[in-house]
Write a protein that binds this DNA or RNA. Structure first.
Lengths: 169, 169
DNA sequence: CAAAATTATTTTAAGCTTAAAACAATAAGT
DNA sequence: ACTTATTGTTTTAAGCTTAAAATAATTTTG
């Protein structure tokens, strides 16, 4: 513990307090604020305008992209929610006639979830308005801002994945 | 529907479908993915390492910054969650001895919520590790990336607020 | 082929979250 | 002072969410 003993990378990393990560913390809090703010407003408008919840809308959005339906476990991965969560969500959407559950013809464990015609029609109507809301919420960003933000978020996504899964796989 | 009839702004905006906002939609989905990814991992680690939930941690984080406690309604605004939500959360944190509820001396309706000494000590321990997790999750971003992302998220936040509250007030 | 491991889903228990209604206290306007 | 409006909190009902355990079917492996 000699004062003279300076680490080898002192030149490159400059003299740094022993671990100050407040900047990253602020960045994370700001990111979270943005998504909470926008998500809350989308949730509010979906309820007000269509009397639908955000999770229901999100699930239908996934299914709209899959004309032949999706396995529950794929939905779970895509939506980043637990299987158990989806079981209940699908139950309610089946009850309201928006989706149907079918046993997979190739795997008797698997359930294939698909939009009904009515569910798809209703979703498309909502999605049209939803897209405008988003455009409005991001309305003050220039095209350059948007592409730059897109790029930085892509980098953030990769960084987080690396930290979560490890560099391997 | 004449092929020759080109809109007046064709020069400046190029030939554009009537209202295409898929770019903003992708931006929103990417922002949401990033925050869901990071939030999920933080949630997982808090549980694994300290057996605490994220909402509990968030509430204690707010109180740690307020040595004299905070009114429940202020907590509600800061955390962007409903009052009713906080009532239950505070109930559980009182039960576990992390916070205390006091009636405000100046307003008999208001409840002042404060960290107990034990709650504060426990929070500080968790916060130390938490900061490292965040630094790791954002670890692949350069200092320039971070400041640029910070700037763009600030702009996004203002844009969303404008869209939510209207330009006035 | 039988045992073991994996994969797909559901169930359960606990906690989180919201909107809306109810309740209580303060502030504002007459 | 009295009425009205506003503010602060809690309650309620419904739905969302998770982790962990349970169930069932498929795949892998010895």
């Amino acid at each position: 513990m000699d004062d003279q003993a300076i680490p080898l990378d002192a030149e490159t990393k400059a003299v740094e307090q022993p671990e100050d990560h407040r900047e990253e913390l602020r960045l994370w809090l700001r990111l979270l604020t943005c998504s909470t703010l926008i998500e809350g407003e989308v949730r509010r408008r979906l309820r007000e305008r269509f009397d639908v919840t955000l999770p229901r809308f999100d699930l239908m959005a996934q299914l709209d992209k899959a004309p032949d339906g999706m396995m529950l476990s794929d939905l779970s991965k895509r939506m980043m929610v637990s299987n158990g969560n989806l079981t209940g969500l699908v139950d309610r959407l089946v009850a309201s006639g928006h989706v149907v559950r079918t046993v997979s013809p190739t795997d008797r464990r698997a359930m294939v979830i698909s939009l009904t015609d009515e569910g798809r029609a209703e979703f498309r109507t909502m999605a049209g308005e939803h897209e405008h809301w988003i455009a409005d919420l991001f309305g003050d960003l220039s095209a350059k801002d948007r592409s730059e933000l897109m790029r930085l978020l892509a980098k953030t996504k990769l960084s987080a994945r690396r930290a979560i899964m490890g560099d391997d796989q």
